[in-house]
Design a protein around this nucleic acid. Structure first.
Lengths: 350, 350
DNA sequence: GCAGGGAATGAAATCGATTACCTGCACAGA
DNA sequence: TCTGTGCAGGTAATCGATTTCATTCCCTGC
């Protein structure tokens, strides 16, 4: 195993021009008190005479002193940082979930460190895990939206608290989770299309966890229970362009009247492909997205899609982790079902 | 001053069910060697007999030992974490820049901690700065895309290396920067519209740094040097809906034939508003966006916009910070001019 | 055969904080 | 007056690593 010790870490004394940061003893000297007294002032744990407190605060301000977090953690064991492991940071759902986590964490004084798991290769997974665990984190949240996330959950050591945020519905495994019921939502979206009279619904997926993708599962379940034929899944990437490419294939067929897309970006690709093929949305083909990015309500036609509350997902994940870290008892998983927002991109068949 | 010491930090012994993490001395005992020897094996800084090395690695694997980063930093002073301060995490430009930073950082073994600066209030700015500086960071990157970012740059203490990533063009102040020449790009976009024969160009801005917004500056400069009238700036928010609202105002006027938008999300709002007002893009009104989000090429009409390479911006910012941290000498600012991508949303006037 | 050099290892010092412990001292009650 | 209590503040121990220093041992060169 390799923790990449020497790799990229700040070199030598370096900083020829940068003066040493002030430390506790510098403050103590400047204020004419002992080191523990300064510490007591700053952590306000014990009684300190107002006059000394004053002197200490003055010295702190003058020196621009800030406590060294590493030293504090070393002695006190109180960790004030959590890690987020994720397959990406810039996709809409990823970014919003991270925003929710960061906001909740900041509100309770916790810093957030983020590491991307590039792929589900052992190397990528382990190096990301090693990177965050080589920092003093109190716990970790893994975004289980994709294969890298799933692999990270599997590989994560049991030594520190872990919470999963993702699109599953139940977890039996190693970590509790804050979840979004993507399966239920996928079912709703598909049923909506079926209820409009479409014989079946085609599906263009985003790269997810394969057999464990909630969206795809829900789609399949809805078709099955409706007795509708189950077309093969078309596998897209995260690029809208892949939706366009696959959309052209679908638009070329006359039996395709309804498409459920793995996310909004795919949906715009499909819609554009339908249009470029000389057909209309929703008159000839109905399209449903997933995520409800803010701008999809402004498309022509406005997109029918599934609204996911990623901010809330992130907040729930942090709350869960926080309770585990503080109480030490394994908390329980929660799942929220997102809403289907019906707009102009879906209409009755025929 | 308040560093929020006791706030939200991991409580007490807690963890009744979680066993203590193994430490170096546990490994040493298990391997039958001294503590420094284990350290030498793991940091591979000195000579250790192959046989001992073997025993140590075995003990490490068995115990699932991981070095305590806080203790390491305390003693060695080598910091392996950088901070990113930003006004947001989920906007396209923010998310992509962060992605670029994280990727570059991870490649050199650095962890990234992220803190959002909610507003340009002193409180918000200081609490975010305190949050990250209470961790042992080697340096910081501030995303200067907005007021909170600008305020954070101003308030940031000079004690640790700082780099700015943003849309300015030059920096004279306290920190070097990796920049995007938004002013030049705004000029290009405006000139493109003028060259199509539009009498002037209207502008809907996003919330930026007020007088220091490069995009708006460039727009104004282009109009000025062309001798075109300068319409008042319409101030939008980050919401596409605000683009729609302002777009309705613009579409109601017959003298408005060209609109330069602060970003792509605003642009879609404007385009939709033009359409809903019974006019056409680009025949009646030309619209230009900013950012080139992947899906805007698939809009109807495909959006003419400015392609910003945020990933590269993030990578440059990290490289800059990295060189400062390692050499201690202040590095120099770089600015890259983004490209105007001409698509279907702009056409000749009239 | 012996000095000198370098590899291999452990003992002890160290980093910058927090925390345990102990000593004064003032003040209360007997 | 004497003892007990509790606030204030200092001394020293501690956290878990890294780094310095000293020691042992082996090998080479003269």
């Amino acid at each position: 195993m390799d923790w990449g010790y020497a790799v990229g870490v700040t070199k030598e004394p370096a900083n020829p021009l940068r003066q040493k940061l002030p430390v506790l003893s510098d403050v103590a000297k400047a204020a004419g008190v002992s080191v523990p007294t300064v510490s007591r002032v700053l952590t306000s744990s014990k009684f300190v005479a107002p006059e000394l407190r004053e002197r200490v605060m003055k010295a702190v301000a003058e020196l621009g002193y800030r406590p060294n977090g590493a030293a504090r953690v070393t002695r006190s064991g109180k960790r004030s940082m959590i890690a987020v492991l994720t397959g990406g940071t810039s996709g809409y759902g990823y970014a919003k979930t991270i925003e929710g986590i960061e906001k909740a964490a900041r509100a309770s004084g916790m810093a957030v460190i983020i590491a991307v798991v590039e792929s589900d290769d052992d190397d990528a997974v382990n190096s990301a895990i090693d990177l965050v665990l080589s920092q003093p984190v109190a716990g970790a949240i893994i975004l289980e939206f994709d294969r890298p996330g799933l692999a990270a959950v599997k590989a994560f050591p049991g030594s520190i608290p872990l919470v999963v945020a993702g699109g599953g519905t139940r977890r039996t495994g190693k970590a509790p989770g804050a979840l979004i019921d993507e399966r239920g939502a996928g079912k709703d979206a598909t049923n909506h299309l079926l209820s409009l009279g479409h014989k079946t619904v085609h599906h263009v997926s985003v790269p997810t966890m394969g057999k464990h993708s909630g969206r795809t599962d829900g789609w399949r379940a809805a078709l099955t229970s409706a007795g509708a034929p189950i077309p093969p899944v078309l596998h897209g990437t995260w690029e809208p362009a892949s939706g366009y490419r696959l959309g052209l294939e679908l638009a070329a067929r006359n039996d395709v009247t309804a498409v459920f897309c793995g996310n909004d970006d795919i949906a715009i690709g499909v819609i554009r492909a339908v249009f470029d093929s000389g057909k209309r949305v929703p008159e000839d083909v109905s399209v449903v997205g997933f995520d409800d990015q803010p701008h999809v309500a402004l498309w022509r036609p406005a997109l029918t899609t599934v609204r996911q509350d990623f901010l809330d997902l992130g907040a729930r994940a942090f709350a869960l982790l926080s309770s585990i870290v503080e109480t030490g008892v394994p908390a329980s998983t929660s799942a929220v079902k997102p809403d289907l927002i019906i707009r102009g991109s879906t209409a009755a068949a025929g």
